[in-house]
Nucleic acid binder design. Structure first.
Lengths: 327, 327
DNA sequence: CCGCATTATGACAACGTTGTCTCACTCGGG
DNA sequence: CCCGAGTGAGACAACGTTGTCATAATGCGG
């Protein structure tokens, strides 16, 4: 900036005025300054600007499990859309389902003075965020709640959705239903399992623990589990997949199997409608989840001081065929 | 920081020393400082730090078309992985295939003094980046080349891949092959169309312009095009989808059609192998694309001054069935 | 021709850090 | 007991901006 000032023969402050479109700059002077800026390829340093002005940094942080997972990338997109409408940019980070990494990313973003933080928590302890929140950085948890602090949270109806899935399968005659979920350390997985159990109770079928498998989904773990659940003497006739990752691995495992149990997947996913049979899913609006959380965050950023809110978004069953097949 | 200093009864500089683990601080003093930091919930302002040190900001910018598109989110993930290994964070933005937005995002990231910029360009003019590059911000283009400047670029073999797709279909007896691509304004779409034409020539079938449709893929545009191409008196017996978006819409349109032309899709996509018939694709390693571009960027960040490089990653045909079906 | 408002510009401090330099104090050897 | 080296700590400036205030030049009414 001082280079620009020297070249234009003005003070540094006048350059600042031109860059900020402040009035009371003589047109001729402004022209000289603009020319100097062009010639030198000057671009003002936003970091310094934000420091001086003490204003917002114009960024928000988003911590998810994996930006490459279609579920989170859709979330990312929805958040970005709202952020853009508020003139903000998004710093994204993947925790890889590791709570240390989640913490590291969150605190790093705070150190960068993001205007707010959106977190899909990997861990259960969030006391580390208390000082940051007290210092004025609003935090909204999404998809999963905070572990041990009170904070804004946006969730989907995991419990209700899974209950509905069980009901759907029971109405189509199934009584031995298996549940194949992600690691029980993950809130949504645990919650859906709870819904599964509750669904069994409400629909008058026995909850059979031997029909439940909860683990991080990989082709191997899911393949192994499905062989166990639908093989053997008294196999399950239907399976509920706890999320889209489980569903995909499950479908691949079933493709090589002669048995084809009925299937309902929690989470909709692309091409589910084009498979044979089309996959019945518990769908929820991922964009709506991102939008709701981001809107809430920006309300806080703009000074909303009301009590922490907890939003639960509805889910709905999309019957496509895989859950309706005869036994 | 001065609050911490006051509370600990030391100078601001000593707090700085403690925060930065500098030696020559008495353990008792350090302890008092740490206690004050804890009590006040102090976290150092990285923006100010970077400003003062004149060092890197520890961020890189990534501009893609849509972070929600699985293709770009996988790219995003790959870039993030490399960035993390170099201790950097990623600022992401979606251009929405709009060149003004691409420019806006890129320059905004430069103003934030990112250490480097990865761009999937939406536009064809990149002169606006010349001052930034001259000022020392390295830029790498990925998936598509820069319009009118010389810069590092990482592409995939669009031409060769499409030629291979045509050859594959011809070997299976097809002579009337349609090409359904994205908007010809997009480099990859134009390049794949060129490959299609070249493939026709090399395989001795006539290139028939009436079998080509190039447009932004939506359910409507693709549905309309496919009805035109495989309907009528002299229909195409095979279709090449120009990218994964086209393929998905195409599959959905074909699901409601009685004719089932052979199909090869440029870009692999999730569940392609589980459809009926499984979809034959020209696959390329999206992660490798992201990795290669990010590695190149970090080489530049670390001072590599060699001539701009152009990397073209190989693609390979994965025969799954949809391209092998009898006529 | 004076006084006063208005316009255009600049000097200076400050944002929150850290690098450099200086200083006071302690300790051990002569 | 004195001196030099080593240790611990602070004062100050600077990074690139912008807000505040001061000042010089201009215009205009009386």
């Amino acid at each position: 900036m001082s280079d620009v000032a020297r070249l234009a023969g003005v003070s540094i402050k006048t350059v600042s005025r031109v860059v900020n479109d402040e009035p009371a700059v003589h047109p001729d002077t402004a022209e000289r300054v603009v020319a100097a800026i062009e010639q030198l390829g000057f671009r003002r340093n936003l970091g310094a600007r934000n420091l001086r002005r003490g204003s917002t940094t114009g960024t928000i942080g988003l911590v998810v499990e994996d930006v490459g997972n279609p579920f989170y990338s859709e979330l990312n997109r929805a958040v970005e859309r709202i952020a853009t409408s508020f003139g903000r940019h998004v710093l994204t980070g993947s925790s890889g389902e590791n709570s240390d990494r989640e913490r590291e990313l969150s605190l790093e973003f705070c150190a960068r003075r993001v205007d707010g933080l959106l977190i899909v928590p990997a861990g259960l302890q969030h006391g580390y965020l208390v000082p940051e929140m007290r210092a004025g950085t609003p935090v909204v948890f999404l998809d999963r709640p905070a572990g041990d602090i009170v904070a804004d949270t946006v969730l989907v109806d995991n419990l209700g959705g899974t209950i509905e899935a069980v009901g759907h399968l029971v109405r189509h005659g199934h009584r031995r239903i298996a549940f194949l979920g992600d690691s029980p350390d993950i809130f949504t997985a645990a919650e859906r399992l709870r819904g599964f159990r509750e669904g069994c109770v409400r629909n008058g079928i026995s909850y059979d623990e031997s029909l439940v498998a909860m683990q991080t989904p990989t082709p191997e773990t899911v393949g192994h589990a499905v062989r166990k659940l639908i093989g053997g003497p008294n196999p399950a006739t239907a399976v509920i997949a706890g999320n889209n990752r489980v569903a995909v691995h499950l479908l691949r495992a079933l493709a090589h199997s002669e048995r084809r149990p009925a299937l309902v997947s929690f989470d909709d996913f692309e091409l589910a409608d084009l498979l044979d049979p089309p996959v019945t899913v518990i769908a929820h609006d991922v964009s709506a989840l991102g939008h709701a959380a981001a809107e809430l965050l920006f309300a806080r950023i703009q000074g909303d001081q009301s009590a922490p809110r907890k939003v639960v978004l509805p889910v709905h069953l999309v019957a496509r065929g895989s859950g309706e097949a005869a036994l």
